[in-house]
Lab assay of single mutants.
Amino acid sequence: ATNIVGKVKWYNSTKNAGFIEQDNGGKDVFVHKSAVDAAGLHSLEEGQDVIFDLEEKQGKAYAVNLRIK
């Protein structure tokens, strides 16, 4: 899926990971530091509006192509 709108639920820069809550009510999506880095960002803030694509690896959904809304 592409161009999904959501809000950062939480992001821990020590653990280099967090979750994004989908505005469409879907399951929360894992976001890794690699996606944050690829977006040219240093970190994510709780409640921040984002747009992202979903990629599945080994049955788990990940946020990729992250951008700030």
Rank of each mutant, 00 (worst) to 15 (best):
N12D: 12
I20P: 00
N65T: 03
R67Y: 05
D53I: 03
G40E: 05
A35N: 03
L54K: 07
N65G: 03
Q58R: 13
D28I: 11
G40S: 06
E55S: 09
D23F: 15
F19H: 04
K60S: 06
Q58E: 13
G26L: 09
F19Y: 12
T2I: 13
K15E: 08
A1E: 09
G25K: 08
D28G: 09
Y62F: 10
A39Q: 03
A39K: 02
F30K: 04
K9D: 01
N16R: 15
N3C: 09
G40Y: 05
N65D: 02
Q58P: 06
V31I: 09
K15L: 15
V5M: 13
K33H: 07
I68N: 05
I51M: 10
K9R: 09
A61Y: 15
I20S: 00
S34H: 09
H42M: 12
V29K: 01
S13F: 10
D53W: 04
E56S: 11
T2E: 09
N65Y: 03
K57Q: 10
E45G: 08
Q58D: 14
D23Y: 15
A17Q: 14
Y62K: 07
K60F: 12
K33P: 06
Q58F: 13
K69A: 12
A63T: 02
G40N: 09
K7D: 01
K7Q: 05
L41Y: 09
Q48S: 08
N24K: 10
A63P: 01
T2N: 10
Y62L: 05
L44Y: 00
A35W: 04
I68L: 13
N65V: 02
S13R: 13
Q58N: 15
G26R: 09
D23V: 15
Y62M: 08
Q58C: 14
Y62G: 03
N16Y: 09
S43N: 12
K69N: 12
G26N: 09
S13L: 11
K15Y: 14
T14M: 13
L66F: 01
K33F: 09
G40V: 03
G26I: 06
I20C: 02
K33Q: 11
A39D: 01
A38M: 09
Q48T: 10
W10T: 05
Q22C: 14
V50G: 00
G26D: 09
K60C: 12
G25C: 08
G25D: 07
G25H: 07
A61P: 08
K69M: 13
F30I: 07
F52C: 02
G59C: 07
S13M: 11
Y11F: 09
V8G: 01
D28L: 14
G47Y: 04
N65F: 04
D23C: 15
W10D: 02
Q48H: 05
E56V: 15
Y11D: 01
F19I: 12
A38V: 07
S34D: 09
N65Q: 04
S13H: 12
G40R: 07
D53K: 02
H42W: 11
I51L: 09
L66N: 00
D37W: 14
K57Y: 13
E21S: 15
Y62T: 07
A61W: 15
K27N: 10
E45L: 13
E56L: 13
N3Y: 06
V29T: 04
L66S: 00
D28N: 09
G40W: 04
K57P: 03
T2F: 14
K33I: 07
E56R: 12
H42D: 12
V50E: 00
V8F: 08
G59F: 05
G6Q: 01
A63V: 06
Q48A: 09
K60A: 07
G18N: 01
K33C: 08
A17V: 15
K7H: 09
I4S: 06
K15Q: 10
D23W: 13
H42G: 11
I20F: 04
L41M: 08
K69Q: 13
V50R: 00
G18I: 04
V8W: 07
G18F: 06
A1K: 15
F52R: 00
T2K: 14
Q58G: 14
V64F: 05
N24R: 10
N12T: 05
F30H: 06
I68W: 06
S34T: 11
R67V: 07
G40I: 03
G59E: 05
D53V: 03
E56G: 06
G18T: 02
A38T: 07
S34G: 08
Y11R: 02
V36K: 02
G59N: 08
A35G: 03
S43G: 13
A35R: 03
Q58H: 14
S34F: 10
T2H: 12
N65K: 06
K60T: 08
G59H: 06
K7A: 04
D37P: 02
S34L: 10
V5E: 11
F52S: 00
N12K: 08
E56H: 13
A63R: 00
G18Y: 07
G25E: 06
W10S: 05
A1Q: 12
D37L: 15
K27F: 09
S43M: 11
V31F: 11
N65P: 00
F52I: 03
I20V: 04
V31Q: 00
Y11V: 09
G6Y: 01
V36C: 03
Y62N: 05
A63M: 02
G47P: 01
S13E: 11
L41P: 02
K69H: 12
S43D: 11
S13A: 13
E46A: 15
I68V: 13
H32M: 10
D49V: 15
K69L: 14
D37T: 14
A1D: 09
T14S: 13
L44T: 01
G40C: 09
N3H: 08
K7R: 13
D23K: 15
G47N: 06
I68R: 06
I4D: 02
E46V: 15
G6H: 01
A1G: 11
N24H: 10
E21C: 13
F19S: 05
V50K: 00
K7Y: 05
E21P: 01
A39N: 02
R67G: 03
D53R: 02
D28K: 09
T14I: 12
E21Y: 11
I68F: 10
H32S: 11
F52P: 00
K27E: 10
A39H: 02
K57G: 08
K15W: 14
K9W: 02
N16M: 13
I20G: 00
K7V: 08
K33E: 04
A17K: 09
E55R: 11
V31H: 00
W10Y: 08
Y62I: 06
K7L: 03
I68T: 09
I4C: 12
I51F: 06
E21V: 13
G40K: 07
G6F: 02
E55G: 06
G40D: 05
I4Q: 10
K69F: 14
S34V: 08
H42I: 12
F30L: 06
V50W: 01
K57E: 07
A1H: 13
E21N: 08
V31P: 01
D49A: 15
I51Y: 07
Q58Y: 14
S43A: 11
D28T: 08
I51D: 02
L41A: 05
E46R: 15
I4H: 07
F19K: 07
V64E: 03
N3T: 05
N12R: 08
L44A: 01
E55Y: 14
K15T: 10
D53E: 04
V36S: 01
A17W: 15
V36N: 02
D28R: 09
I68E: 05
Q22S: 09
N24Y: 08
A39R: 02
K60Y: 11
K69T: 12
K15H: 11
D53H: 03
T14N: 12
V5W: 11
T2M: 12
E45F: 15
Y11T: 06
A38N: 08
A61Q: 13
L41G: 03
G6C: 03
A38E: 08
F52T: 00
K7G: 01
H42E: 12
Y11W: 13
G59W: 04
Q58M: 12
E55H: 11
G18H: 02
F52E: 00
E45R: 14
H42L: 13
E45H: 14
K9H: 04
L44K: 00
H32I: 06
I68M: 09
A63E: 01
K27C: 10
Y11N: 02
Y11C: 05
Q58K: 12
I4V: 11
N24P: 06
F30V: 05
Q22R: 15
A38P: 02
K69Y: 13
F52H: 00
I20W: 00
A38Q: 09
H32D: 10
A39W: 02
F19L: 11
V29M: 02
Q22V: 14
V36Y: 02
A35T: 09
Q48F: 07
E46L: 12
F30C: 06
L54P: 00
E55M: 14
A61M: 14
I4K: 09
Q48C: 09
N16F: 10
S43L: 10
Q48G: 04
E21M: 14
Y62A: 05
Q48N: 06
V8H: 00
F52G: 00
T2S: 10
K27W: 08
E21R: 15
V50T: 02
K7N: 04
K15C: 12
G6P: 00
R67M: 05
V29C: 04
K9M: 04
E46D: 09
N3P: 05
L41F: 10
V8S: 00
D23A: 15
S34Y: 09
Y62C: 08
K69E: 10
L41I: 10
K15V: 11
W10P: 00
N24L: 09
I20Y: 00
V36M: 09
V29I: 11
N3E: 07
K9F: 03
G59L: 04
L41K: 03
D23P: 14
L54Y: 06
T2D: 06
A63I: 04
L44W: 02
Y62R: 06
V5K: 15
K69S: 12
Y11M: 06
A17F: 15
K57F: 13
T14V: 12
H32W: 06
K27V: 11
K9C: 05
